[in-house]
Design a protein around this nucleic acid. Structure first.
Lengths: 199, 199
DNA sequence: GCGGATGTTCTCTATTTGTTCTCCGCAAGA
DNA sequence: TCTTGCGGAGAACAAATAGAGAACATCCGC
């Protein structure tokens, strides 16, 4: 489904002018810029561009603003401290937050942890790195997850879920995979982004 | 959770006018400046800005004053593409930018490169990672630098400067350190931050 | 304690914005 | 000529947002 002539024009206009908008423009604003008088007409074109994946609607917002090509703003996500033994993730203290660029997170509920230890060194995750975690209870095999083990210890490991057991695999030759029964492991989130500060 | 239009307007106003206020302004003062007649309305917006981390309430004080745009925002740094052979860094095309949280950069001139290759894998820097580079011509031994070698090849390596030679050390057991004379190596920047996107 | 200034919370209303719908004009082809 | 698809206008609607205003809470100086 190639773009029609007008859709292409509008897309080009958006590409050329995204920086000029402080915020994502509204339909009315774009109508004015493009010389249109009907929101409904523009809306049709924008929907086509969304369907083709050229622009994307702003996440939660239903009203207010609408479209934004490319990557957008940074959000302040809750910072829940170091990932360490014996800590539940729930009960967000909401005290501290950390700014995370949009391209390092997902559209779902996310938070930030600081990595403690070198168990994932081979996966390029070092002690002190900031991990952006999407909060969810399930994961696919091979994903790196925040797992609560036996209700007492929280770790960041690559997961492998088999029929009768769960392996938590450290990416470090010094550490063997840990094997648990499914009831012993509770997934608390999945790694979606990483930040590191040198010096 | 991006800011709404009005929230963004108010934040911009605060950014532009913080110096003009002797003290942090009260809600009533801000209402007057912004043309609002209801404290309650403004209060809602301010709370939203606080929740997103763009401003923060004055600590102990309850009465009197209230807000102060405090912590760092994310800056849009120039994105100069993949770090690859044969490319000079200079001559910023200024075309693309990438949002970088303040804690991943320094106060000096910075830009972003995307890492190509696994030569720094042992240092936790993987293919595809985004490296935040401070633009400068000198580095301390042990720092990870963007180096232009013989005017033709640009690489990201750990540097060791000795009296009569310069070592560019890949953090990868498969690759031996590269030895050059000081005249062959030009430092173009130093790694100060790293970002990675999973999935 | 009293009163004023200030932050907070609430309800109510108005405006903005995205969405959906119908209708019209135009041009290209069968 | 008739049909089809594109592009646009405009009305009507729902949801989110923005604002007004009142009531309450809390701190401060007197």
């Amino acid at each position: 489904m190639p773009l029609t002539r007008r859709q292409h024009e509008i897309l080009e206009y958006l590409k050329d002018n995204t920086e000029h908008f402080e915020q994502a423009p509204t339909l009315d604003q774009l109508c004015a810029c493009l010389g249109l008088r009907s929101r409904g007409s523009l809306h049709k074109h924008i929907q086509a561009l969304i369907a083709e994946g050229y622009v994307e609607p702003i996440k939660g917002r239903h009203a207010g603003v609408r479209l934004t090509p490319g990557l957008g703003s940074a959000d302040a996500l809750p910072y829940l401290g170091k990932i360490a033994a014996g800590r539940q993730i729930a009960a967000v203290p909401q005290s501290e937050t950390m700014l995370v660029p949009e391209h390092l997170r997902t559209q779902r509920d996310c938070y930030v942890l600081q990595v403690s230890g070198d168990s994932m060194r081979e996966a390029g995750i070092l002690d002190g790195d900031y991990a952006v975690i999407e909060h969810r209870q399930t994961a696919s095999n091979g994903e790196i997850v925040v797992a609560l083990v036996r209700g007492e210890e929280t770790t960041l490991k690559r997961i492998r879920q088999e029929s009768d057991r769960i392996l938590l695999i450290a990416e470090n030759p010094d550490m063997a995979p840990l094997v648990f029964s499914p009831s012993e492991v509770e997934i608390q989130g999945v790694l979606v982004g990483l930040m590191r500060n040198y010096g």
